[in-house]
């Protein structure tokens, strides 16, 4: 179900917690699984739950509670733009509008070629760098002027 490499990473996470608290590693395990699979299908969540010896619904609670897990397939590149007030004051909303226009999609939509998904994000703790966006959850891009958005999309294989 998951690659050997992912399982090793999960084991490393499990080792951070007391032996009888394997469940503590569920957030990390779901993250690692999502990186490998692109999103969290029910089977993936169930696999992770069984791997950690916890009820599947408890893992599902976690997967559905935290924003950054994707319970539906997303494009190869998920772009999450912060539009919260501090960012909005420095162009966060405008950056999002620009992305929508360029990609031709709205929030929570994926481009027909399956390349991009656009999401609206909440505060990323980087308001001083506004506009900010996250690429595939793990890479933060700051000061996203139109030019830099164009650059990013080009780098990621878009127009």
């Amino acid at each position: 179900m998951l690659s050997q490499e992912s399982l090793q990473q999960i084991d490393r996470e499990v080792a951070k917690y007391p032996p009888e608290q394997k469940q503590s590693a569920v957030m990390a395990a779901l993250r690692i699984a999502q990186v490998e699979k692109g999103w969290l299908a029910n089977e993936t969540i169930e696999f992770v739950a069984n791997y950690l010896g916890m009820p599947p619904i408890a893992a599902y609670e976690v997967a559905s509670f935290y924003n950054m897990y994707d319970l539906q397939p997303v494009g190869r590149h998920k772009i999450t733009v912060c539009t919260n007030l501090p960012c909005a004051l420095s162009g966060g909303v405008h950056a999002a509008e620009y992305l929508k226009e360029k990609l031709g999609i709205d929030f929570n939509e994926t481009t027909p070629d399956g390349l991009f998904t656009l999401k609206e994000g909440e505060c990323m703790g980087a308001c001083g760098d506004a506009p900010v966006l996250l690429h595939n959850n793990h890479r933060m891009c700051s000061w996203m002027t139109k030019e830099r958005i164009d650059q990013l999309l080009a780098e990621l294989g878009g127009k």
Partner: peptide, 17 residues
């Protein structure tokens, strides 16, 4: 645990896996 409360806030739902 056969039931849980999934999602959060106003979207919270009681459900089985």
């Amino acid at each position: 645990m056969e039931l849980g409360q999934a999602f959060r806030g106003e979207h919270a739902e009681i459900m089985p896996f």
